[in-house]
Design a binder for these strands. Structure first.
Lengths: 136, 136
DNA sequence: ATCTTCTTTAGAATAATTATAAACAACGAA
DNA sequence: TTCGTTGTTTATAATTATTCTAAAGAAGAT
């Protein structure tokens, strides 16, 4: 069980004042056992369902972006009309079930180490992401 | 140098009649030595520049989608507001220069084989894509 | 040539996201 | 507390990528 204090800490670290709305967003994002993959629209709907209170779409966008910037959320590179985020910010990879439009975490040992044997002058590697698309 | 006949063949294979507009699109897409990474907007502008003739945006979208469906273009999974395509349809991976918003092909030997050690019942692997983000 | 079918196009419709600005809430100092 | 400042929420408008539509035009077969 994640406590409200932890949410407040995350918010403050992200330069956000802890408001009722943002605490509700945190409840949905971080008060869970397993990793959570979502789109803004998923999150927006879950807030209403889980907390009974409506938070405006703009606030959901703002808060998610601040958490993403601070590193509390990870954006998943995928071709979709919507942007997907992940509460698991560790270095890991994904299955994407194209039909169901659902993401599944892959453990690093499921993929093995990836060694990039090439470099671009003046650039350094920021992230390495493997996306495994699944079909029936 | 790719010939007009090849463009017509690609179009017919994609169930598209070879029209002036579509030939122009092919000129920009396929008449080049190196692989070509683009967004619809890139392509739209290049057509005007390279052929001197304007093709409507709707036609560009339609043609690109038909080529993609037929396998003459590959869609690259990346987080961007725009969709990226690649004329290199072989199995390969990418660098993405986040600052420049530019893609660079990675040869398979630059990445090494990727063995996915996990499977999901009832699903099979459609593709494995590695995206290496670059920063300064 | 003519007829049918497909195509092009401008513009409208849709959908995700971002911007705006007015009402409101958190914070800190007195 | 109270008050003033600063940050926040919200509905709504604006923006942007993409898809849809329907009328005018071009390709293909006969």
């Amino acid at each position: 069980m994640t406590s409200k204090q932890e949410f407040i800490e995350k918010l403050r670290n992200s330069s956000l004042r802890p408001t009722k709305q943002r605490i509700n967003i945190c409840e949905v994002l971080f008060n869970r056992d397993k990793t959570f993959h979502f789109t803004i629209s998923d999150l927006f709907n879950l807030i209403k369902d889980k907390t009974g209170e409506k938070v405006s779409l703009a606030t959901v966008y703002n808060t998610v972006h601040a958490f993403h910037k601070k590193g509390y959320l990870k954006e998943i590179p995928i071709n979709s009309n919507q942007t997907y985020f992940d509460t698991n910010v560790t270095d890991h990879h994904h299955f994407f079930d194209v039909k169901e439009e659902k993401l599944i975490d892959l453990k690093n040992e499921d993929v093995g180490p990836i060694e990039i044997q090439r470099s671009i002058p003046g650039k350094k590697i920021k992230s390495v992401e493997v996306l495994v698309k699944l079909e029936d």
